[in-house]
Computed example of a mutant assay.
Amino acid sequence: MSSEQPWYLTTAAPPGIVQMLLFGVRPTCLDGASLHGVWTPPHTGAHVFRPRVLRVDAELEDARTHPVRRKAGEVITLSEEAELVLHAPALRAWPGHDPVPDLALVLTHAAHCLPVEKAAVLFESGLQRRLLTRRGAEQILASLPQRIRRPLSRIRADAESGTETIVRWWMESRHFPVRPQVLFPDRRRRMDLLVGRSWVIECDSREFHDDPLSYDADRARDLYLASRGYRVTRLSWEQVFLRWKETQTMLLAILRRGEHLDRPRT
């Protein structure tokens, strides 16, 4: 495929990666994590990187790339319409011959690029799927600036979905009492999140819900918890990733009533 790299194009090549390689860039951050099998939240644009060079290819300029920058902790870009998000690591050469860099570099880029809760989604998915070890995660965190490393030190290995990570992270950042993966009273199953003493939040991880067996099992879980005196709220993928601000407002309204601090009413 390339005169510089020993790659051969096959039908198994992931969609989109070929165009990136033709541009002279490689996937990283959200796109690289997805290729490693990490669960990733929805995003626009393709996150790519390349070593520092003196010359910018005309083709790459035409692609309307922009480097990632941070200002007051927020990610800003040079162009809202850019198709590629160009990460700028301090590298003089490619880190290896593989068109997809190793997961440690991908997550390092993600930590610098993404809001902390979305970077946490990638780390926690990698840990939960055993694509990343706890020691490996700690080594990545140790290499980050303190302003990024400190909040990410809360990552866990038992989050079962990106929606669960986002909701838990939001509650923890506002100092609401929340515990993940608490055992049911029957001790055979686990709650996604237990808020206070009696409010259970179940987080759907699927964008589309077309499995009748899962639907039935979810409702059976909800009914069992309600019978034991718990309040149960089920949040969909869409509520967390497409309508998150609206969802936060409603969650806050419930939390401010303080009913989650009561014991389950059996």
Rank of each mutant, 00 (worst) to 15 (best):
residue 197 R to S: 14
residue 134 R to I: 07
residue 54 L to V: 07
residue 57 D to P: 07
residue 11 T to D: 13
residue 191 M to V: 02
residue 120 A to T: 05
residue 71 K to L: 11
residue 54 L to T: 08
residue 130 R to Q: 15
residue 232 V to P: 03
residue 198 S to T: 02
residue 246 E to N: 00
residue 96 G to N: 11
residue 81 E to I: 06
residue 184 F to V: 05
residue 27 P to M: 00
residue 93 A to D: 15
residue 186 D to S: 10
residue 9 L to V: 02
residue 58 A to G: 11
residue 62 D to Q: 14
residue 226 A to V: 02
residue 264 P to H: 01
residue 77 T to M: 14
residue 19 Q to H: 06
residue 245 K to W: 08
residue 20 M to F: 10
residue 133 T to Q: 14
residue 102 D to V: 11
residue 180 P to Q: 10
residue 239 Q to F: 06
residue 208 F to D: 13
residue 118 K to F: 15
residue 261 L to A: 11
residue 197 R to L: 12
residue 247 T to E: 07
residue 119 A to L: 04
residue 263 R to K: 10
residue 98 D to I: 08
residue 20 M to Y: 07
residue 196 G to H: 12
residue 194 L to M: 10
residue 32 G to Q: 10
residue 25 V to I: 08
residue 248 Q to S: 04
residue 184 F to I: 09
residue 264 P to L: 04
residue 204 D to K: 04
residue 17 I to E: 06
residue 73 G to C: 09
residue 151 P to G: 09
residue 75 V to C: 10
residue 80 E to A: 15
residue 208 F to E: 12
residue 35 L to N: 02
residue 121 V to C: 09
residue 128 Q to A: 11
residue 214 S to E: 08
residue 95 P to E: 09
residue 83 E to I: 02
residue 218 D to E: 10
residue 20 M to K: 01
residue 145 P to W: 03
residue 115 P to E: 08
residue 137 A to F: 05
residue 210 D to I: 00
residue 204 D to I: 11
residue 228 R to I: 05
